[in-house]
């Protein structure tokens, strides 16, 4: 216990003594998490809306693929992305390997199925007659999508929280695509790994505490937003998955 307590104290010292390295790692972590979540929302929301609202051929296959994407092994995704991004590889010309943008791409690939699958579930839980009524009164596709997102907002924001949490905590893809380069692509989660590898358990615990604090603050803030104005109403949501770490 003393060991852990020392790590917690060290975390506060690192934070409040204005340690530039720590703030740098914090900044990279947030940059990657926000960028990856944004990209995941950009791809996952339309997919989730299409699967939740649409009645097209292949909808079940698409849903199945999205759900399967929830279990993607981050290390394998990181490996595949890295293989495509290495110099001389098909996407090597983009020069994304060992860069923050490359890590964002890999993290977005892991996070978009979370957004897509949970958005589809939340939208499918909205009473169908509401959409039928909207169509009967002339609602356009964008208006239907806006209605679906608003009605299923608890679930959609839940999906965003899950995607953001995944992007904050993930390790395997970050190391393989970003190289865990201190000051450039190292995140709080990969910093923990690096410190443990170096035998610096105290510093690793400190980074771990910071990561947990960040997850709690961001998750809490999004949860407040999620239920803002909901009052006692609930619904359209789903049991949130745990924060995924690898």
């Amino acid at each position: 216990m003393t060991f852990i307590w020392d790590g917690v104290k060290q975390a506060f010292e690192l934070l409040f003594e204005g340690n530039g390295d720590v703030y740098g790692v914090l900044g990279v972590t947030l940059h990657i998490a926000i960028g990856a979540t944004f990209l995941a929302l950009l791809v996952g929301l339309p997919l989730g809306l299409a699967c939740g609202l649409g009645r097209f051929r292949g909808r079940r296959v698409a849903l199945g693929l999205l759900n399967a994407g929830l279990g993607l092994p981050p290390v394998v995704v990181g490996l595949i992305v890295a293989l495509f991004l290495f110099r001389g590889a098909p996407l090597g010309g983009l020069e994304l390997i060992y860069t923050v943008n490359g890590v964002i791409l890999a993290q977005a690939l892991l996070a978009f199925p979370i957004v897509g699958a949970f958005t589809a579930t939340a939208v499918a839980a909205v009473p169908r007659p509401l959409f039928d009524q909207a169509r009967a009164l002339g609602a356009s596709r964008p208006q239907l999508a806006a209605l679906a997102l608003r009605e299923a907002r608890v679930g959609v924001i839940g999906a965003t929280i899950a995607a953001f949490g995944s992007a904050l905590s993930e390790v395997g893809a970050v190391v393989l695509v970003g190289g865990n380069i201190h000051g450039r692509t190292q995140t709080l989660a990969t910093a923990v790994l690096a410190e443990v590898s170096a035998g610096e358990y105290g510093t690793a615990i400190a980074f771990g505490v910071l990561l947990l604090g960040l997850v709690a603050i961001c998750g809490g803030a999004l949860t407040v937003f999620q239920y803002a104005g909901e009052g006692r109403e609930r619904g359209g949501g789903f049991p949130l998955p745990g924060w995924r770490a690898s």
């Binding site: 009473p127 169908r128 007659p129 509401l130 039928d132 009524q133 009967a136 009164l137 002339g138 209605l147 608003r150 009605e151 109403e233």
Partner: peptide
């Protein structure tokens, strides 16, 4: 002309 219909279920937005 334009036509509007109301289905059986009184489905209202939240």
């Amino acid at each position: 002309g334009r036509l509007a219909s109301a289905g059986q279920a009184a489905a209202l937005a939240r």
